[in-house]
Design a protein around this nucleic acid. Structure first.
Lengths: 113, 113
DNA sequence: ACTTTAACTTACTAATGGTAAGGTTCTTTC
DNA sequence: GAAAGAACCTTACCATTAGTAAGTTAAAGT
């Protein structure tokens, strides 16, 4: 019994889904699944994201231990971001979401307006 | 080739995760997994949510086809919300998130401040 | 040395979320 | 059967978060 009543308290699930559901969070992790990237690479792979939010979200991910930040050649202007083991494990969640999309045809549902 | 370059375009994934990541969305679906509920039941099961947001989110879920809304005894004041098959299929995503939490110990990471 | 680029940072505006009050329509209670 | 209360919203207003645009600093190219 190292955990609460169930194997994962519902408030932990709540925290987790609110965290990974923050705007752009899912896309940033998704981008890094294919390997570590530099700031501007991530930026160019996610159309619409702003400098500020990309910086914010990356910092939050680093703080949560899902992403590491590495200065290449110890230069402040060469930064690499990549997934930690915990971040990589998120792949299974992405797969589950993609399977769910395939199953329910989400794109059709959200053809907005 | 009914779909795009990959089996699910990354923009569809983006749309999907931004939708399910909206505030309270994850919790509302989670609550309904155990069976259909009335408005006030859902409300009491999610501490902190406001009337307005619960109404908004439920409407969005109904519009997206993940939740149905049923008037009991054709009364406007007796409403039941439940998951449609597409909503129920979301269980697998929840399971994946819970497994990921168990694996990476998310609760420890987010002991804030 | 001069310009460009990477990686932020800051200031300001727009959108979204939270709070609180009110408004019907039903049910309950006397 | 009238009054009170609960269910399910709706509206108005304030707070927080996100988006936009401009500026900053350090290194790298020319």
């Amino acid at each position: 019994m190292t955990r609460q009543n169930c194997s994962h308290s519902c408030s932990t699930y709540h925290q987790a889904i609110e965290f990974i559901g923050k705007r752009w969070m899912g896309m940033i992790i998704y981008t890094l699944i294919t390997g570590p990237k530099r700031y501007h690479e991530i930026h160019s792979m996610i159309p619409g994201i702003s400098d500020r939010l990309l910086t914010d979200r990356l910092n939050e991910l680093v703080e949560a231990g899902l992403v590491y930040k590495k200065f290449i050649d110890s230069s402040i202007k060469k930064v690499e971001y990549g997934l930690t083991p915990n971040g990589l494990a998120f792949q299974d969640v992405i797969k589950a979401i993609q399977q769910w999309i395939d199953l329910c045809g989400f794109e059709k549902l959200k053809t907005e307006s």
